[in-house]
Design a binder for these strands. Sequence first.
DNA 1: TTCGGTTAATGAAACCTTTCACTGCTGATC
DNA 2: GATCAGCAGTGAAAGGTTTCATTAACCGAA
Lengths: 342, 342
Amino acid sequence: MSKRSVGVTEVAARAGVSLGTVSNVLNRPERVSPATRARVQQAIRELGFVRNEAARQLRAGRSRTIGLIVLDTANPFFADIATGVEQQAADSGLSLVLCNSDEKPVREEHYLSLLEEQRAFGILLVPAMHGSPLIEEIRQRGTPVVLVDRASATGQCSVSVDDVAGGRLAVEHLIQAGHRRIAYVGGPLGIQQVADRLAGARAALAAAGIASNRLRVFDTAALNVACGLQAGEAIAAISAGRRPTAVFCANDLLALGVLQQMTRQGLNVPGDVAIVGYDDIVFAAAAAVPLTSVRQPRTELGRTATELLIDEANNAGAHHHRQVVFLPELVVRESTTVDRNS
Amino acid sequence: MSKRSVGVTEVAARAGVSLGTVSNVLNRPERVSPATRARVQQAIRELGFVRNEAARQLRAGRSRTIGLIVLDTANPFFADIATGVEQQAADSGLSLVLCNSDEKPVREEHYLSLLEEQRAFGILLVPAMHGSPLIEEIRQRGTPVVLVDRASATGQCSVSVDDVAGGRLAVEHLIQAGHRRIAYVGGPLGIQQVADRLAGARAALAAAGIASNRLRVFDTAALNVACGLQAGEAIAAISAGRRPTAVFCANDLLALGVLQQMTRQGLNVPGDVAIVGYDDIVFAAAAAVPLTSVRQPRTELGRTATELLIDEANNAGAHHHRQVVFLPELVVRESTTVDRNS
DNA sequence: TTCGGTTAATGAAACCTTTCACTGCTGATC
DNA sequence: GATCAGCAGTGAAAGGTTTCATTAACCGAA
């Protein structure tokens, strides 16, 4: 509360020019003669003038900020997506605001509204559940929304990785290693990615002629390490003869939790239980037993999504919605590399 | 670009009231008669009116958003701080904007300016280096700034953990386990936390009567896994007789990198090399060899910093600057638990 | 009937920037 | 010498919200 707002007007007065000229110095300096420019810049320095972004934005009608809503800021997978977004956004002079929905639709809607009220340049959304109806409303009111890590069902822009293929890759690998009793750890199943990876897993089993109800599903409350620990406890509690010999987890956080619990319970990985994760976060390779995981092009995902968003925002008329789908890749490590026939 | 801005004026017209009344419905609904309120709300729904945050903010003079600038969004340690901030901020109806300085002073200043232009409610900063002079300017112009994870040298508000004590804890533990040749991996040394932890390590050596130049320092370019891998390579390359028997890392990401490299190079942890990390991120416990680490009260850190910030912003006059310092805690795990006398 | 006291609703002013049509000028061209 | 083009600089208007002093309407009491 020390000083009250120094505005362009004060600067103009101090430099002995009109406020329009100050604005020109700020935005199109080449239009102002060097002498005047210097005088204005000095006035700015002397008065400690700081541009008011709110006023700019009010005039411009939209902000220079992209909102990215993710399921979990603490998951390095999303941090990497954010990095990609930030890189691409910086090229166009845009900033990034990172929002954490914590997998909760209520929080997702809260942030969607917030971003719309802020007239965000655009919104990148990793949907928590079956997309909120708000999304469509927001789009219709003129704020572009691009789905990330999830294909759009309504023909809008989206960037995703084929999760069914990823699930298939993972389970095919396990079947090939001789596993027949396989478990899937992941949830909530309302999250599309979780459901798709499960579908891929089932498809792989079917293709191998294994009854897909042989797949034991552990529905978790969230996709973090704590839930992985819980699921691991449940798995370890099953008697050895009926226990799954392999576990496919919907993401690496869960996988690391399961892995940690196996060790605690005295079970050997991959001897007693093989584990496959998903995302190939940087910690997967550094795990107790380096984790086999399904890798997604994380940074690329963020970058491409941002490209689509920018195109949609700038060429509203000529823009063509696109659903970009990347292919995942299996990275095999020690957590699955001992052959075994049950 | 579908519809052009529906404002309070249109809503007022549609509901047959004045624009002041619409504003009241939005901000102080109890002052408006139920009948009118209902009419206005219906008009809002029918027109798809969305409040313009920029205009609000312009009028209010400051925004309802807190900026948090951290060294590395991908480090779960900072993600946890962010969680604490978010929790506390939500209680006061404030939102959080997360910014990534990537340990680079240039980027830090960029975000500081950006947040000041946006008239942020306040700024929480984990400084990348010796605090930028910009910080003081911004404070003087009226935006409160609280340092996080770093004690303020200028008497301003800050929330930190005693890093010297943390470094001492870690190295005392190693000395007690019989280690004499100890290495410190961390950098850049311009980051205060990195320097403090090193100072603590030296203090512990001195207290034990070990020449502190016996501490071999590996200055890294950043605090991430990749740099840990590099440092690990350098350590492994040293001949067995002169190689440090223990490594203290400035954070867990480095420690995980070093650990991974030891395994790659066929060295046993903790047999050949013991490792201590810092932060106790969730992945430390799940590592190849569960990591001994110095734990900091992460969420608490974020929460307290936000409290101070809010107090400073709201009671500008009566506010007393405080430097809160938490104490770290050593969590011992397998990466250091084999006794050895060199 | 009048007055005082509520409650509900009004609308102009303020917040700060950017834009754009416009005014003077200078120097060049025919 | 007249006309033009181009440059530098001007300042009113617009953008959407909130605030606050003010008006209008109403009810009950004197």
